[in-house]
Design a protein around this nucleic acid. Structure first.
Lengths: 190, 190
DNA sequence: TATTGTTATACTCTATAACTATA
DNA sequence: TATAGTTATAGAGTATAACAATA
């Protein structure tokens, strides 16, 4: 067999082990993470994804549903069902944007904020467990590097303030229910 | 509004921004990676997943199909269809394990190795592009940290040698076709 | 009996397209 | 006309269960 001759890897040798494949590494770690956090996020509709939506709402990222969907990497049609479940669970509300009534801002309720804080603490503990193989400073490094790659400009209190303004504004004069909002077909969370 | 009073984040303040959520970070980066590499891996059945299988085979990880599936985080029934497509494309072969004829070792063909080397180079270039926001030493750090979290013991030439032994062994005396291997129903890659 | 691989079926998730309301 | 959101339908992906072969 000619290929089994000289070089160990069979050919060029320029390729590293498949365990260096970034997609493999990210996928494996993410899988471990999701498995570990599954028990925590199962009490919120949509699981980890539902938590991220509520988390974004709590953080004051009150973009339109489409903007939120894009940021979280899910389809806007999926976002509709997801928000329906979250709203039904009393965790968020959909407030029409007074400036552009086509848009809807996702605003967390008190229950939503409370649940988010609770789950956030639990998740942080689980995360540390997932990152147990790393030293504390290495965990920080990993977060910083990933954060940089994710290309996120940290969300400050400004957007949060804007969100609260919307809520306050709507509390005064309630406008007529914008779209009909019928109940979707069969899309229960579990 | 009581919650909008002192602390900016609304409540305890112990929770970080949702952009610090490890699941969100990993998911976002992985999504970016998959989108960037999509064009490269579309020429192999199963896409990124198919590449990982071939890559594992080239690296000499010739565990059983089930072991391979577990390592790659996919179902063993999916692995059957995936390997069917890869074998049909002439990239790998399924060799029954002489020691335990229930198992099948996944061995790459020459075409499989060649395609893997080609794609591997392209993927490495794309990866560097995805990691463009990081300095060279930071990219290395990220890979090392992820590699540690993935809990992989690097695969050396030992297992590769074992794989070649299986091939050589089978080249001599071909045993009767172990299971029937009928064609699956409708499961084309695209 | 337990395990590997295969096959078929059922289920879940996601994407595509059509519709309404608003700009 | 273009966009946000909703809804239904179709499609892809995944898991569940039953089977044959081997240990």
């Amino acid at each position: 067999m000619a290929t089994a001759g000289g070089s160990a890897a069979g050919s060029a040798g320029a390729h590293a082990s498949f365990t260096s494949d970034l997609g493999y590494l990210l996928g494996t770690v993410l899988r471990t993470y999701l498995k570990a956090t599954d028990a925590v996020v199962e009490e919120i509709p949509g699981g980890a994804r539902g938590f991220q939506v509520v988390s974004a709402a709590v953080s004051g990222v009150t973009e339109s549903q489409a903007g939120l969907a894009q940021r979280l990497g899910i389809d806007r049609t999926v976002m509709t069902y997801l928000l329906y479940d979250l709203e039904n669970a009393g965790l968020v509300t959909r407030q029409p944007d007074p400036a552009d009534r086509r848009n809807r801002h996702v605003v967390p309720t008190k229950d939503g904020r409370d649940l988010h804080d609770t789950l956030s603490e639990k998740l942080h503990a689980v995360e540390e467990h997932v990152l147990a193989a790393l030293e504390p400073h290495e965990r920080t490094t990993l977060r910083v590097l990933l954060h940089r790659l994710a290309g996120q400009h940290p969300v400050g209190p400004d957007s949060l303030h804007a969100a609260c303004e919307v809520v306050t504004d709507l509390a005064g004069g309630v406008s007529k229910a914008p779209p009909p909002r019928r109940r979707p077909k069969a899309r229960s969370s579990k």
